[in-house]
């Protein structure tokens, strides 16, 4: 692994260049208290004063609405046309929890049943991570096996250091990116970057206000599908899709056709949410998850059990977005703690 150093001034110039050569996706301050990852034309649009973006950046690999193909039935023929492949992209400024979020999605879309749309975007997107510089009160990534300076999964990891930025190439793709723009960097001769990152990691590790312990929770859930606890949580749930839509690991989608004239149209897929009542409603009207209890239970079982059953990965990365945004304070940290307490006394 090779490390490089870049001055503060060069960061802007480098990002301006990247925006010219790639589709550059970076954090933008959209409104007061709203940070979104969006395509930018240059450094001037980027806002680096954030810990977590309001919505996770997963949408650039797995868009909220993605056109799959165009169809036409004109002249009695069925004609399908592929949509234009997206330009090579770079996501700059991914926090470690969001990188882990993408690693959590990978086996879903790139596993036994490869999904060409996801695969195409994933392969054409370079991930540039950015170590956190502070811990927010809702952050609990260290409890879910991550850390504020743990950039595993990124191609390139950036750390703020005295007088500039340190860059570590974690993959050959990251190395190529450095090589292509080598004028902006100098090799890190004295391991300054790694030392600075480790020091930052140690400093931030002490700033977490709340940790959770998932030990035994999955095993308890393996044995206990029916719990009155889910009624309690569901009673206050509004059944909105906030938690699932801002989450870096939720990945349910629905497929629909849009054909205003009935002959030509586009097939798209878009995010769906297991919190919605119609998510599991079938054509005949039957709904296997008839109340909010089954829906809430599904979401937490997906995070804490199903994803581990299928891929041996936690379904939650501890970004804390749902903790801050749930209008009725359904707090996954509390749920893990409650389940663990019940499990210990079971």
């Amino acid at each position: 692994m090779k490390a490089y150093i870049m001055t503060g001034d060069n960061l802007g110039a480098w990002l301006d260049t990247l925006a010219r050569d790639f589709t550059l996706i970076a954090p933008v301050k959209e409104e007061e208290n709203v940070i979104l990852f969006k395509p930018v034309k240059g450094f001037a649009e980027i806002n680096l004063n954030y810990t977590n973006s309001t919505v996770s950046p997963k949408g650039w690999i797995f868009p909220q609405t993605e056109e799959m193909f165009y169809f036409s039935t004109a002249g009695g023929q069925i004609n399908l046309t592929d949509v234009q492949a997206p330009r090579p992209a770079i996501i700059f400024g991914l926090r470690p929890c969001d990188i882990k979020g993408i690693l959590t999605l990978d086996p879903v879309f790139n596993g036994a049943y490869p999904d060409p749309y996801y695969q195409n975007r994933r392969e054409n997107t370079i991930l540039v991570g950015l170590c956190c510089t502070r811990v927010e009160r809702h952050c609990f990534c260290t409890s879910m096996g991550g850390g504020p300076t743990d950039g595993r999964g990124a191609d390139l990891l950036v750390t703020e250091i005295d007088g500039g930025y340190g860059l570590e190439a974690l993959t050959s793709r990251g190395e190529e990116l450095i090589h292509r723009y080598q004028g902006y960097f100098t090799p890190d001769q004295h391991s300054r970057v790694i030392l600075a990152r480790e020091e930052l990691g140690q400093k931030l590790a002490g700033q977490f206000t709340r940790t959770v312990d998932t030990t035994g929770v999955k095993e308890f859930l393996d044995q206990n599908f029916e719990l009155p606890y889910w009624d309690e949580i569901a009673r206050r749930c509004l059944g909105c899709g906030i938690c699932t839509y801002i989450c870096p690991t939720c990945h349910c989608f629905d497929i629909f056709d849009f054909a205003p004239d009935g002959e030509r149209g586009v097939r798209s897929r878009c995010w769906d949410s297991c919190m919605f009542s119609h998510f599991t409603r079938m054509a005949g009207g039957h709904n296997p998850r008839p109340t909010q209890k089954e829906r809430v239970r599904n979401r937490f079982l997906h995070k804490l059990k199903y994803h581990r059953d299928r891929y041996d990965l936690d379904g939650c990365v501890g970004c804390g977005r749902c903790v801050t945004k749930c209008p009725v304070n359904i707090d996954i940290r509390q749920i893990i703690a409650d389940l663990q307490e019940v499990a210990q006394h079971a």
């Binding site: 979104l36 509004l238 059944g239 909105c240 899709g241 906030i242 699932t244 839509y245 919605f276 209008p327």
Partner: peptide, 12 residues
């Protein structure tokens, strides 16, 4: 344009 269509506004 930034609406997520989470329907929280409606549900509440």
């Amino acid at each position: 344009s930034r609406c997520l269509r989470c329907y929280a506004c409606r549900n509440v």
